[in-house]
Design a protein around this nucleic acid. Structure first.
Length: 393
RNA sequence: GGGUAGGUUCCGGAGCGGCCAAACGGGGCAGACUGUAAAUCUGUUGUCUUUCGACUUCGCUGGUUCGAAUCCAGCCCUGCCCA
C-alpha cells in the first residue's frame, strides 16, 4: 500500500481526526507508530460500541503498527466523567483488575494478542508524589477544563462536579506522554481528553499525538449510546442466537446506523428492510462466532419468530427433575425466569404482566390462572413471553 | 462563614394534615397489530395476597395529632448568590 492508500484506509469510518496531515507525515517515517486505545475497565464486557475503536486499532495493527491497550486501572477508580450527568461510582482495585482480564480476553477476539502491548496506568500514577501531581495540574487551567461540554452543562444546570473528576482528562493525557503515543483512538466524546494528551506531549517537547475519534454507537433503544449500564448493548461474548436476535430487534434507522458504523457499508435499499437486517445480523454474528453459527442462528430465528414455530426452535432446556416440588404455575414461571433468564420478577408483576394478558403459554395454550398446577412432560414448551421460552426435558 | 432554594416511588415532576402506594410525563414489562422494526392502541409498573386486605416507602431521627410525604425540632446532604 502507498502512504496515501494507508492514510485513506486509516481515515475511513473516523468521525473527527485532529492532525490528519501529521498522520501522513508520521506514516512516512516508516517506523511502527505507537497507537493507543484507552480502556476504562468499569464494566468487564466488550460490546459493539467498543468494537468500533478496537476495530480501528486492529487496522493499525494490520499495517504493522504497535497497538497499545492502555488499561485505566488507576483512572477507573476515579470514574471517567465523560458524557456523564452525574458522578460515577468509583470501583475498587480488585474489581478493576478482574474486569480488565475479561476485557482484554474479549478484545483479542479482534486484536492480535501477540502483537498487542498492554499497559496499566496505575504503574505510574500510583508512584507519583503530590508534588508531581501539582506540577501536572499546573499545566492546565480551570477554564480549559470548564470548556468541556459535560462539565460545563453540569455547572450550568446546577449539578455537581467533583474536583477529582477534573483530574481525569489530565491523567488520560499524561498516559499519552508516558507511553509516547503517536496516535490515540477514542469515541467522539473523548476528543477533549485526546487533545489534552496532545497539549501535554507538546509541553514535554514531544511530537503531539494524532487524535482520532470514531463515531459513538447508539444502543438498542436507538437513542442513548450503547452501554452496559443502560442495558441496551450487544456483547461480543453473547451467544450467536442472542446476538442475532438483538440485531434483529433494531429499528430501521438504527439498522442503517449499524451498517454504516460497524460494517462501513450502506444497506442495499433494493432489499426488503427485514432481509437487509438479516444480512447485517449474519455478518455481525459471524464476526464473533462463525459463519455457520451465524447461519444457524438465522435459521433458528426464522423458525422461532417468523414461523412462530417454537416446537422446532432451539430453546433453552430445563430438566423436569430439577423443578421445585409441588409448584403452581406462578412459582414455576418465577423459578424459570430467575434460573434460566436471570430475571427477577415479583409475583405481582408476573400475575399482572404475564398471566393476565396471556403471555404464559404451555404448548401454545394460554395459562391464565397463576394457581393452576401444570401437567408437564418431557418435550413440553412453556412460553413466558414473546422472547422467553423453555423446553422441558 | 452569611443569605436562599431544595432533598418524593427507575428518572423527571406534582402533592403540602385524612379521599396517598402517592397525579402527570418518560422509561420498563406484557398483550394486540407487524417485518421479535417503527408508529399506534391496551393493560401494568412498592412487597405479599385469588379477592377483601395487610405490610414497607416520600433525606435521617425524634415530636405534635385519632391520623403526617404533608405540621414542629434537631441532624445529614445538595444547588445558587455573597465572602
Amino acid at each position: 500500500m502507498t502512504i496515501d492508500e494507508q492514510l485513506d484506509y486509516l481515515m475511513s469510518g473516523t468521525a473527527k481526526v485532529i492532525g490528519r496531515d501529521e498522520l501522513k507525515e508520521r506514516l512516512k517515517l516508516g517506523r511502527p507508530l505507537r497507537v493507543k486505545l484507552g480502556v476504562d475497565p468499569t464494566a468487564p464486557d466488550i460490546h459493539f460500541g467498543h468494537t468500533v475503536a478496537i476495530e480501528k486499532l486492529r487496522q493499525f495493527q494490520q499495517l504493522g503498527h504497535q497497538a497499545i491497550l492502555l488499561i485505566g486501572d488507576f483512572t477507573a477508580t476515579i470514574g471517567d466523567p465523560t458524557g456523564r450527568s452525574v458522578t460515577r461510582p468509583p470501583l475498587t482495585r480488585d474489581q478493576v483488575l478482574v474486569n480488565a482480564e475479561t476485557y482484554t480476553q474479549q478484545a483479542f477476539k479482534i486484536l492480535d494478542r501477540a502483537k498487542t502491548e498492554i499497559v496499566y496506568n496505575g504503574d505510574w500514577f500510583r508512584k507519583m508524589t503530590y508534588e508531581e501531581v501539582l506540577q501536572l495540574n499546573s499545566k492546565a487551567t480551570m477554564q480549559q477544563m470548564l470548556a468541556r461540554e459535560d462539565f460545563h452543562t453540569r455547572v450550568e444546570s446546577g449539578r455537581e462536579v467533583r474536583l477529582h473528576e477534573l483530574q481525569y482528562p489530565l491523567m488520560q493525557g499524561w498516559d499519552s506522554v508516558v507511553i509516547r503515543a503517536d496516535v490515540e483512538i477514542g469515541g467522539t466524546d473523548q476528543l477533549f481528553n485526546l487533545l489534552v494528551g496532545r497539549d501535554l506531549q507538546k509541553a514535554q517537547g514531544m511530537l503531539p499525538q494524532i487524535a482520532m475519534t470514531l463515531p459513538l454507537l447508539e444502543g438498542l433503544d436507538g437513542v442513548r449510546k450503547m452501554s452496559k449500564s443502560y442495558g441496551n448493548y450487544i456483547g461480543v461474548d453473547e451467544p450467536a442466537e442472542t446476538m442475532f436476535g438483538k440485531v434483529m430487534s433494531t429499528s430501521d434507522e438504527l439498522m442503517d446506523r449499524y451498517y454504516q458504523v460497524l460494517l462501513g457499508a450502506v444497506r442495499d435499499l433494493s432489499l426488503h428492510p427485514m432481509e437487509a437486517k438479516k444480512q447485517l445480523a449474519v455478518k455481525l454474528t459471524a464476526r464473533y462466532h462463525s459463519e455457520e453459527a451465524a447461519l444457524l442462528a438465522k435459521q433458528d430465528w426464522e423458525t422461532r419468530f417468523s414461523k412462530r414455530d417454537l416446537a422446532s426452535a432451539d430453546l433453552p432446556e430445563f430438566d423436569l427433575m430439577s423443578l421445585p416440588e409441588g409448584a403452581n404455575a406462578l412459582e414455576l414461571v418465577s423459578h424459570l425466569f430467575s434460573t434460566v433468564f436471570h430475571l427477577t420478577k415479583s409475583n405481582g408483576v408476573l400475575r399482572k404482566e404475564h398471566f393476565m394478558p396471556g403471555a404464559i403459554q404451555l404448548n401454545d395454550v394460554k395459562v391464565n390462572d397463576p394457581n393452576s398446577r401444570l401437567e408437564l412432560k418431557s418435550g413440553d414448551i412453556l412460553r413466558l413471553s414473546k422472547k422467553h421460552a423453555v423446553r422441558f426435558l
